[in-house]
Amino acid sequence: MNNDIMIIPTSQMTKEHRQLYLNADPDEQLVKQYLPRCSPFELRVDDELIGVILLEPLDKQTVEIKNLAIDPQWQHHGYGKALVQFAKRYARLHGASTLVVGTGSTSMASLLLYQKCGFRITNVDRDFFTRHYQQPIYENGIRLRDMVRLAMTVK
């Protein structure tokens, strides 16, 4: 990450923003449902949009990473980690002590990222994706069924 990186609030919903949100969560209706409850931020490198994160306060002590996506051509360069670090600072600044995230049990890269950043698995929501998503999702050749929930202390 040698380039000029900025993580800034955004109210935009361009075609590029929409595609990034859908890269992380393929159900557009669900994204539209939780988007109004979230604080949206974009990650730009040399003024190019390459990532997004949606942060949702769940209560006074907890902030959830609701959606985090990096453009596929920019993945594995530390930008996802930069967004997680940003989320930790955001949670602390808003008085929260816990940062949580949920991701698919077949989302190996996401699970690895979150654990490298200090998250610990708290539980598994069995059949979450079969209950909440109309269309089956396949990742790494496996049908996604379960959500893995992770948390970390930020204070």
Rank of each mutant, 00 (worst) to 15 (best):
17 H>Y: 09
5 I>C: 09
8 I>S: 11
85 Q>E: 15
30 L>F: 08
50 I>Q: 00
37 R>F: 13
137 I>W: 04
68 L>M: 14
14 T>Q: 07
25 D>E: 14
6 M>W: 01
61 Q>T: 14
132 H>L: 02
144 L>D: 04
66 K>W: 00
118 G>D: 09
5 I>M: 12
4 D>K: 13
12 Q>P: 00
134 Q>N: 10
51 G>M: 07
71 D>G: 03
55 L>V: 14
32 K>I: 10
109 A>P: 05
13 M>P: 00
63 V>N: 05
129 F>T: 10
144 L>H: 05
61 Q>R: 09
74 W>D: 00
146 D>Q: 02
152 M>D: 00
4 D>P: 00
49 L>K: 03
75 Q>K: 09
121 I>C: 03
27 D>S: 14
13 M>F: 12
14 T>G: 12
59 D>V: 13
80 G>Y: 04
87 A>S: 15
115 Q>C: 04
60 K>C: 02
37 R>K: 08
128 F>S: 07
65 I>V: 15
23 N>K: 01
133 Y>V: 13
123 N>M: 11
136 P>R: 06
23 N>P: 00
81 K>W: 01
122 T>Y: 01
99 L>C: 13
36 P>M: 01
143 R>C: 12
84 V>W: 00
75 Q>E: 06
144 L>T: 11
35 L>G: 04
67 N>R: 12
78 G>F: 02
105 S>F: 03
68 L>Y: 01
71 D>Q: 07
45 V>Q: 07
111 L>Y: 04
100 V>K: 12
83 L>D: 01
113 L>Q: 09
100 V>G: 05
89 R>I: 14
147 M>T: 06
151 A>G: 07
97 S>Q: 13
4 D>S: 11
75 Q>T: 11
68 L>W: 02
38 C>P: 15
123 N>L: 08
126 R>T: 14
127 D>N: 14
125 D>W: 02
119 F>C: 12
77 H>S: 06
77 H>W: 01
50 I>P: 00
